[in-house]
Design a protein around this nucleic acid. Structure first.
Lengths: 195, 195, 195, 195
DNA sequence: TGATAATCGAGACGGTACGTCCTGTCTTTCA
DNA sequence: TGAAAGACAGGACGTACCGTCTCGATTATCA
């Protein structure tokens, strides 16, 4: 039997207030201008309560992403059987989301956080649907169906998708729906089974 | 004719000392931990001299990139006639560069700076060779040679290359030389002229 | 033949603009918050033009006092033959002047300047009429008339008058007309010829 | 009942270190050249800890005076029964003290501080012994003894003493012992009961 | 049923950096 | 060649946060 710790347990209400405050602040003022003190005040919590459970601002953000407090929608590609159509629609959905300035800023904030904390980057690409569990799965299905050329590196395709989204965020140029389609075609033709 | 301003002109020695100090600091401690005061001290310059000419830390970094003080090598792809070989070699050169931890940190720093200042992002991709002036040119040659399928969006290909490099930086996973080759093949097959 | 100095001579208009600006600023914001740069801007003059001719802010103020730009009225005691009445009226005139807040602040400013530059203190007491040339003269007349006891130290009486005014300025308690009269009586009885 | 504040209380050690540092600096370099940053460094304290408890440099000085950290001796006049002798000795003691350059500078510093903060002026005259509690008491005794003329304004006499000391400080002319005696005689004769 | 132990809110603390303001010097151009 | 304009190195300002700490109050377990 473990030594069975004594004393008050961690307050769930404090924890969720912190995550909510973080989420709210990152949307309103962005990651860089958000401060630990600001989070604490917004959450009605002592600063120490944050430092007790998280080592850094970026760690709090990472947990926000994990909990879905931040970026609640998950951009998983659908499966209609047509891989090109599915991916195009998925990419367009992401770009549509990014056309809302608050969303664009928030995602750019998450890139900042990723620089400090790689974990945030992982969770971010997970949310975008470009994670092993989601996009990979969809691509594997396409591979099995013969829609992709055997031997295609699923990971490379993922990286390309995530990378391009990030590159566009950094350069502040969200592509049009048409460009998104061209982009998918470009990649898929490389990976397509040449019938 | 302009009113012909009177008084001392901007000091070139102060300007270059600031850029040199910025470059040195970003390599040694990274963008986030670098401060304006630190730059001023390192450059032997008053803080105000920095604020007089640049609005922010990221703007100084942008000018460093422009001047080639930071990241002096330009990763332009060669032109041996074989587009696949050239791009592979180019990508491998970048990844080799990134395998030096100081370089990796510096590029990650530049991503941080890009979040604040889109201009840094532009200059960064320029330095990586993935700019209209360099990579584009190489791709256009390949297009003309018939090595690429007509109608291929050169910009999309560029974005993909830059994006992937950035994605790998954020996730701290620099690909091997073999993965770099696979990656080029994947993209180029999509864009290749099907002979 | 004298060496006949060449070039533009000192600009009188610049000099007077500087004194006027100093005077205006000291009235509006007080000595401590007034800056050399502020004077230069207000006077439409280069900073160096001030530094060329005066060693410090307080020296400019001293010259303002000397020129009568600042504190133009001179508070000389009259001579009606009755020394007590004359000094009482004189002191009341000063205290009436000080009851205007802007004047009180200005005089307090001049105390600040005196701490840095004793010359300002001299000029200040001169303006108040408590200088060798004015008050002393009036007292000497009273001495000769037999209104003051022989051997009275005229300088001591002056110091007492100036000192009391300064003490009241520092403690922000400007005496009433009645208190001023009592004050003169107190001093003069000590110095009065006991008939 | 007050809301019973929670959390850490004010650190007494920080407070006294600040007062000690202020006192030391004002003696060494004077009020005007003393800076808040200098005090903080000297006291081994964060700047904010000073700003948290005092609104300005002069307020810190005022508290130093109150605590007796600065100017620890109090120049109270003695009571030997002879009011003239007591006051003369008292004034001479002050002037002897002022003949030490460091002391003279310190008192001049306190005049600077008084301009900004009237409270400093009050405390200063208190320390000089010319406060309601000390000099007044001595004069009242003299009044009761019949050494002073009934109706003499004790406050006026006080103001005159303090004022003269301040005037001499500003004009950098510390009187000799003989002048101090003459001065007391001048005032006291005015207030003396004419036997 | 206390004593013990951990959490909580609050916020003071020693620090670092911010971005602004001013100092006193120096340099350039104009009249 | 004096004056305006204003850049420069330096340094202090007062503010904002950092991450650590201590306080008193509040639970929850252990003895």
């Amino acid at each position: 039997m473990p030594p069975a710790r004594r004393g008050v347990v961690r307050s769930e209400s404090a924890r969720s207030a912190i995550l909510a405050a973080t989420s709210s602040l990152i949307e309103r003022i962005g990651y860089d201008r958000m401060t630990i003190e600001g989070i604490a005040t917004e959450a009605g919590v002592g600063k120490q309560t944050i430092y007790r459970w998280w080592p850094s601002k970026s760690a709090v953000v990472a947990e926000c992403l994990l909990e879905g407090v931040l970026l609640p929608e998950t951009f998983a590609p659908h499966d209609t059987g047509d891989i090109a159509a599915d991916l195009t629609e998925w990419l367009q959905r992401i770009y549509t989301f990014l056309r809302v300035p608050a969303h664009e800023m928030m995602l750019r904030s998450l890139i900042s956080a990723s620089v400090e904390q790689p974990e945030v980057g992982d969770r971010l690409s997970q949310r975008l649907g470009a994670s092993p569990e989601v996009l990979t799965e969809r691509l594997r299905v396409a591979l099995d169906n013969g829609q992709l050329k055997p031997g295609t590196s699923v990971r490379a395709v993922c990286d390309m998708f995530v990378g391009t989204v990030i590159a566009h965020l950094l350069m502040r140029s969200v592509p049009t729906a048409r460009e998104a389609r061209e982009f998918v075609e470009l990649i898929l033709e490389g990976a397509a089974a040449h019938r």
